[in-house]
Design a protein around this nucleic acid. Sequence first.
DNA 1: CCAAAAGTGTTATGTTTACACCCATGT
DNA 2: ACATGGGTGTAAACATAACACTTTTGG
Lengths: 222, 222
Amino acid sequence: MELKNKLYKNIGIHVITALFTVEKGITKVLLIRRTNEPYKGCWSLPSGAMYNNELIKVAALRELKEKTGIELDDLSPFRTFDALDRSPLQRMIGVGYIGIIDNKRVEVLKSTNKTSNADWFSLDNIPTLAYDHNEILNYAIEKLKEKIITTDILKSFFPNGFTLPELQDVYESILNIKIDRRNFRKKMLSVVIDTGKEIKYLGRKKAKVYKFDYRKKDISIF
Amino acid sequence: MELKNKLYKNIGIHVITALFTVEKGITKVLLIRRTNEPYKGCWSLPSGAMYNNELIKVAALRELKEKTGIELDDLSPFRTFDALDRSPLQRMIGVGYIGIIDNKRVEVLKSTNKTSNADWFSLDNIPTLAYDHNEILNYAIEKLKEKIITTDILKSFFPNGFTLPELQDVYESILNIKIDRRNFRKKMLSVVIDTGKEIKYLGRKKAKVYKFDYRKKDISIF
DNA sequence: CCAAAAGTGTTATGTTTACACCCATGT
DNA sequence: ACATGGGTGTAAACATAACACTTTTGG
């Protein structure tokens, strides 16, 4: 059985992903260059249409993989974009997702059959993007700042745990602030657990490796 | 121009609204009884399909009016529901909205051409609802609790301002807690402004009327 | 032995909580 | 005059912010 009224049809779901990384203190987002109309040749966030038999998040993960080669386990929805004219083809409801990974851990395919180019762009050097992707990216950046202080979203950046100095560097990069090291440790220690491991990060001294304590799912840090 | 691939078609958007009120210390939600299949005769949240040429929020406001007679200015989106089988007709993406009004200010139409019955139900007396509406309502309740402490959503409950005692009663009802009156005032006074008016609420003494200070859009109270 | 980053503790300030009495008014 | 709810202040507990020296180790 199907709805008959044409007014209910011809709506598509579009998934758009803002995938962030932090590299040497610079927060970056993954962009791709479009190979097809509309907006051919234009940079955009990795995005595409959802199939009507898949979950929205699955569509976002699939599109990200098809367009960039990056295969993730999870993404976080942050907002729906429904302006009537946001896509020139037909009415498309956009569902935005954010994720964050360490780009040293992944290989971005520079070209796929759907993408001629893909690269990480510093947030203060974003070109004009296809569709409403500049607007979507701005919302995504704000949501990322919110999520790193209210959720454990950064665990996807640090799948093997983290030292507190490197965690602090990520916070400072994304939030664009300096944090006192001692105060940062005090707050973080209420939300992480020691893994027993130690590694060297920037210094010559070893640092303890921690991971987020999943018993406290909703953390709030600052 | 239209997308050709059938996999992208036949997706509908469903809007579902949880409209709350607080009446004599009891938090209630507006339910309607369905007159048509599927789930004919079943209680549900006011909901319906979006037209492909309207904004999602507009669809939610329109459906609420058609099904209950209540005409609001605004609703807050809180979550999208995309399980493949959530509607038996065809794939329907559900977009949930919450709102809160003082039910003394509105007249609910007990029957419309789309509704045989509509009424306010106490949250601890919710029947089995159509579709996945029980699940949606549970998320809506949690989001309402969150929004009254992080946003000024309660201004729609108090379009003409409020006294602090009546505001406190609403907080206590929704959050199911008792709050110390002096501490409540201390926090609230940083987020509201005196309108200069005074009215009587429960007591014999007049109470000052306040409204939310819109210069502080994102309030956080507790 | 020194440069560079890791690790640690205390005090001051601000925020949150707990708590009890007087005021205004309608009956 | 009294019952009912409106209005107010203070001290203790807790959380946050500011601040500087010692430790480790590769070169």
